[in-house]
Write a protein that binds this DNA or RNA. Structure first.
Lengths: 85, 85
DNA sequence: TTGTGACTTAGAGTCCGTT
DNA sequence: CAACGGACTCTAAGTCACA
């Protein structure tokens, strides 16, 4: 799975979780409306600056937008083990 | 603190932690040595594709390279609480 | 081993639309 | 409200010579 797809999915999921339209998010992050649409369809490799601005608008960490969606029991265990390091 | 600085610091720190030279990392990630040098000096806003390639070469998650360096006891507690969600 | 300037080009990012 | 197109600008991406 390409990193841009991970980012696209996280972006769309988080935006919808906040009940925001692409246009509202675009305005908050000061990014073009059509560009956000493109990002959610994995058209472009966003720069980390854009990732950061979107993260701020969505009130999350920039790193959260690049995290691979790993849910379930196994993933939680892996997370716990990562902490133990 | 700009996101590109966070990235630059994480990149340099992780690379040195692995005992790698810029040239070695460049070869592993298939990126030019001088470009890695530029990234470590916060010259560019890297794309998430580059971040991902460097993360793979350093054997970490792409998200880890964008994490703000928050070490110490307080940070670990915060991490634990984040897990509790 | 790394920093830096000069350079080219591919693609990120913007702005106008229509469907 | 979102997908999608064309045309544009600017910067990241990538290479090289040299300190």
């Amino acid at each position: 799975m390409e990193i841009r797809e991970v980012f696209a999915l996280n972006l769309k999921a988080l935006r919808q979780a906040k009940g925001m339209s692409q246009e509202e998010l675009a305005h908050l992050a000061d990014i073009d409306r059509t560009y956000i649409s493109s990002l959610e369809r994995s058209i472009y490799n966003a720069s980390i600056d854009v990732v950061d601005r979107l993260a701020n608008a969505l009130e999350v960490e920039a790193a959260d937008l690049l995290k691979k969606p790993a849910a379930g029991r196994k993933a939680r265990l892996a997370k716990k083990m990562a902490l133990g390091q």
